[in-house]
Design a protein around this nucleic acid. Structure first.
Lengths: 116, 116
DNA sequence: CTGCCGTACTACGTCTGTCGTGGTATAATA
DNA sequence: TATTATACCACGACAGACGTAGTACGGCAG
């Protein structure tokens, strides 16, 4: 099965993370597992990419972090989406529809989609 | 009207250029105009982005350049797609379908598409 | 009780693609 | 004569992704 290269999904890492945070606070490891699951193993976000996205988005005010100790005694940094993050997410969704429209003008129509 | 940011289309500049070259050789200025037209003004590729894509793709063997003097006496560098470029293009089309599938898992369904 | 795997990060430096700035040069048009 | 459109290139900055490596703790097998 092919996996998606980072260059094509690059513009959507933040969007994916924010989508997951809209369901409630979460933390790095969980987010990365959920991305893998939701994408059906087609996209595996790199740890460094994920954590640098967190710090960038926190700096931009799209998410907020807080510390919490889990049941197993482990300390975690949780992230919560802010209202600025919410708007940013919705903007990105709009942009996605636009991008889809544009890109498809440049995609050959005759190509069959291979399921793996 | 909103315009697409380079970050989201980033992985598809090469694809768009190759798509246009599949209809026959072309050159920088023409390609950039065609991208603007085909995207209905929604995406305007920057000159430097375009020309650096040309040199990168030539280095990678996806396109070949040759000089020609147009009717109006102007010298131009034309580019022609190679068979390696053709395969690369088709791969990118496949990847597009995959990317679309993945990204849409992370896009809110409730969003209306605004036509400008 | 020891080593290893899974969890949960962080730091640092490299690389690639995009883009801002600015420059060259010719032809057509006002 | 000046401006606009065409046609391209060099240079350096920058951001995001990523490779590598390291810390630290819990649980479990041997």
């Amino acid at each position: 099965m092919s996996v998606i290269s980072s260059d094509v999904i690059r513009g959507y890492n933040d969007t994916m993370i924010l989508y997951l945070l809209r369901n409630g606070p979460s933390y790095g490891y969980e987010i990365s597992k959920k991305i893998r699951e939701l994408s059906e193993e087609k996209y595996l976000i790199k740890e460094t990419t994920l954590y640098s996205a967190f710090s960038r988005m926190e700096k931009n005010g799209f998410i907020e972090s807080f510390q919490e100790t889990a049941d197993n005694g482990k300390k975690r940094t949780y992230y919560r989406i802010t209202s600025a993050g919410e708007s940013y997410y919705l903007d990105k969704c709009e942009e996605w529809y636009l991008t889809k429209e544009v890109v498809e003008h440049f995609i050959s129509q005759g190509i069959e989609m291979h399921k793996d």
